[in-house]
Amino acid sequence: MSALISARGIAIRFGGVVAADGVSLDVFAGDHLAIIGPNGAGKTTFLNICTGYLKPQGGTVQFKGRDILGSSPRAITRLGIARAFQIPQLFLEQSVRENMLIAAASQARRFAPFARLADIPERGDVEHLLALVDCADVADRKAGELPEGKRKLVDIALALALKPEVLLMDEPTSGVASSEKFTIMDTLVAALRERAVTAVFVEHDMEMVSRYANRVAVWSAGTISRQGPPAEVLNDPEVVRTVIGG
């Protein structure tokens, strides 16, 4: 099976901090790949590179065999890679529904200058997605008024509204109340499977990893120290010592 996203020899450093030192990682179609690793290891940096926000000092990234290093986040988004953020990136002065409709309009390329945003044909999908992440009740509120957990969920829904082939999520449920975190992830992951969306998620919560990932990559000290099925990786004494127990 050939990789959907294929990173080879990624090297990036910020001053003295080495975030990646020749990292190679493949994401296969249908994967639900979890990236784990200590704080400041370089996990978010990797997502920044894959989406064109940062350019590494060395290495290549291909999406379906096509070089995407040097492309802008916009171009990469258009190719089918959507991203949800560690720190939610929303349009704070607009309502949650408007946030979502903008994403849906972009995906369907609806930019007729005098059509109403609220009337685009995709508005039904938007309501559906908001219900999926349990945010239907806050649809009319300004994104800036939401508590952190809800913002994280809207942030994911925004990426989903783009109907991506690959969804990159950065600690999707950090800040989400633990009482509802698994309920929402259950629905979300089921929806991803149903739509055949390949997912990569950076995660610190090992319960989430063992529950939702089919593969785990351990990012530490600028390299991928271990890769494999969760059952194996999460029980590796070395991983337990450096990442989980630490």
Binding site: T51, Y53, S72, P73, R74, T77, R78, A82, R83, Q89, L90, F91, I102, A103, S106, Q107, L158, L162
Partner: peptide
């Protein structure tokens, strides 16, 4: 940033 990340 998010505008660009929505493909706009």
């Amino acid at each position: 940033t998010r505008v660009e990340y929505l493909g706009i």
